[in-house]
Every structure is written in structure tokens, then in C-alpha cells.
Design a protein around this nucleic acid. Structure first.
Lengths: 200, 200
DNA sequence: TTTATTTACTGAACACTGTTTATTAAGTTT
DNA sequence: AAACTTAATAAACAGTGTTCAGTAAATAAA
């Protein structure tokens, strides 16, 4: 049936159109300040139409999260090029931190925003892959680390990286009185120091 | 003038009434799900009345933040009782992490929520005091640490603590697949390990 | 080709949100 | 007792996410 094929294709295109617009606005305006009506305006459809393709605003976020996790994963693949395991770990961390600096709104909706974690309890698209990149990288050098459990090592390194970036994004790091133009280097230095610390 | 005194007193009482109601609802429902109308209902006044005492919803948050920072500071004073500097540091960290576990919604509005950081750019009530508790505690044992700069040491320890708690509160830590009933102990263990790591 | 049916879309509404303003009622001063 | 000041509110405005009855076009059946 050619027609149903085309219909399906058009449906997918419409979904993509909506998500692209949503993502663009989430990045430039943030999730909260982007309304369904804004998105509808941008793609020149009525707000109600969006609800024919997505259940609610959370599903839009869920989908954009998936895209964003793909992007950070691709950044990992792009940046982590070394062969030495410890070097790879460092490259991974730099890649992560840089992603946060360069795409703060994406980082926000991936790791900070409270939202569609209700989606089937467990599966969280493409986040697993990104996390797996970390655990895999850690596995390769776990014998050089002061950790025996990969998950605990991940906690120690992801926790710090995320903590610093989110304090930065949500402007809490200001309380340290570290000058604005030095914060990024301070964060990077702290993360690098962490790598040295966890080395056996 | 007795009357103006009483008026001033009544005004302050009203402000307190509003803030108490707001705080209670921020804790039980969260900031986003608490509306001005809800608060007004609770104290049996009209929504417009609240605007006679506070500029906007952000000012409410700002005020509750102040209270919350006082509370965490009090928790620090209560929990950090040791005389040995390193012990004090550990007690401080435990106090911080426990506060996050026991008052997740307060923690949220203090450290995660995006909001009234616009308030005069700089002053952020009672947060400085709490942060100062950390830097002071660090100063006392900086010679036993692998850091020379107190602010960088704070970054390393606050960053990790905050990172883990916020990943927990915003449910991102689930991706580690660490069983729910083990996460808290895993977080505490990670923080303790960090203390060992930064020890010279 | 004409009729029937399915599909895609939308205008208008609902129930909420933060916030402002004109009006009323009470308290205070003259 | 009259004039003035203050405190509180009802009602409105502009926005939000979301739903639903109704319309117009595309497809299927006659």
C-alpha cells in the first residue's frame, strides 16, 4: 500500500518538524519559556495539531532529551581518541565539561530539569549509551584507579563534573567569589585534579 | 507613636504569615506547583493581598531561600562538634549531605532551582554564611589537604557533594542502576572517599 | 463520477498561572 | 461628625497546557 507508506512518512516528517522547532526553542529560550503556542507559531500550525503527534509537553522534552544524549555521545566519540586508558578518561571528562559549557540549555534539560522521568520508570533514551561510555572507559583503567567498583568510580567523577557544571549553570558558584572570567578554568582544573586524585 | 509601631508590627507579622505558608507549601508541593492563589487560600486572604507585602513570587522564593540557608547553617553548627579540623570537615560534609536527603525540596530551591539570582546581583541572604562555614572549616585543615587554595578545595568537595545530591534529587542517578536502597550509602561512601582522597 | 468515510487540522473553550487596578470598607486623624 | 489614609479584595489581563466539537480535504467505495 503506497498511500499508507506515504502517510507514515509524512507523519514522521511532521514529528521531526515539531521536534526540531521544539529543540531550537528549548536551546534559545529554555524549556520553561517555550510554550506549545510558540512552537506552533514557529511551524505555522495550530497548537492543537502538536497534540496529534505528541501526548504532552513532557513528551516533547523526552524526545529532545533523546536527541541531546545522542549529541553528547557523538561528542564523546569525536573527542575521546587516545589509546591510553587514562588519557581516554581525561578526554572524556573534558568532553563532558565542554558540552556543559557550550550547550548549557541542552545540559540543563538533560541533567537538571525535573521532568519526564515518569516515562516507563526505566528506559531513558540514549542516556544509557552515554553513561555506558563512561563505565566502559573506566573499566579500561580501573586497575590504575583507587576504586574497585566501576559504578563507584563513576559516581566520584560524574558527581564532581555534574556538580560543578550545574552549580555554574544555575549560578550558585558565584558564592565562591571566584571571578567570572576564571570560573571555567577553575572548574576544569578541579576536574583535572580529581583525575590525579583518583589515580592509584 | 504607638499606632505606627503597631502597624509596623502587624505588617511584619503578615509578612511572616505569608512566608510561613509559602515555605510550608514549597516543601510539601515544591515551588513550581505552589501558586500564589494556593498560598492565599491557605492564609485565607485574597491573592492580591500577597502583592501588598511581596513584589512577586520570586521575592517569596528569595525570602524562603534565606530561611533555608539559615536552617542549613544551624544544622552545620549543630552537627560540626569535633575539635580536630579534619573531623570537623567530615562532620560538615555529612551534615550537608544529610540536609539534602532530609529536606530535598529545600535543597532544591536553595541550590538547583533557577530563579531570583537577579536580586541585586550580589547579595544572597545567608548563603554566604553557610559557604563561609565551609571555607573556614577548610582553612583549619588546609595544610593537611592536597590543595593550597581554599576556594579550589571547596570546589572539589562542594562540587562532588552537590553533584551527587542533585543527581539524586533530580533522579538522574538511576542510570547507574545502583539499587534504590543502596544509593544513599553509595553517595555517603563516595563523599567519604573524597575526603580520604584530598588528604595529603 | 458521485457518494461515503476516514484523516488532518483548527477555533474555541476550560481550568489554571502570575500580576495589576479600580473599588470598597475599615481604621485613623482632624 | 467629616475628612483622610490604609488594608483588602473582586475582577480583569495576558499568558499557560490541554481538550474537543466541528470543518475541510484526501481517500475509498458505490
Amino acid at each position: 500500500m503506497g498511500i499508507t507508506d506515504r502517510k507514515e512518512r509524512e507523519k514522521q516528517e511532521m514529528r521531526k518538524l515539531i521536534i526540531s522547532a521544539a529543540m531550537e526553542m528549548f536551546i534559545t529560550e529554555g524549556f520553561d519559556k517555550t510554550s506549545i503556542r510558540n512552537i506552533a507559531d514557529k511551524i505555522e500550525y495550530s497548537p492543537a495539531t502538536i497534540y496529534l503527534y505528541y501526548k504532552d509537553k513532557d513528551e516533547l522534552l523526552y524526545e529532545v532529551q533523546g536527541q541531546a544524549f545522542m549529541e553528547i555521545y557523538n561528542a564523546f566519540v569525536r573527542d575521546v581518541t587516545a589509546t591510553d586508558p587514562m588519557d581516554r578518561l581525561q578526554q572524556l571528562l573534558h568532553s563532558y565539561v565542554n558540552f556543559g559549557f557550550e550547550h548549557p540549555d541542552l545540559y540543563d534539560l538533560m541533567f537538571i530539569l525535573r521532568s519526564p522521568m515518569n516515562a516507563t520508570e526505566n528506559d531513558w533514551p540514549n542516556c544509557d549509551e552515554a553513561y555506558h561510555f563512561l563505565t566502559k572507559t573506566l573499566e579500561e583503567c580501573i586497575d590504575q584507579l583507587r576504586f574497585t567498583d566501576v559504578n563507584l568510580a563513576a559516581l566520584s567523577i560524574w558527581g564532581l563534573g555534574h556538580g560543578l557544571i550545574s552549580l555554574y549553570i544555575r549560578e550558585r558558584i558565584k558564592v565562591t567569589k571566584i571571578p567570572d572570567d576564571q570560573i571555567r578554568t577553575a572548574i576544569k582544573a578541579t576536574v583535572d585534579e580529581q583525575l590525579r586524585l583518583i589515580k592509584r
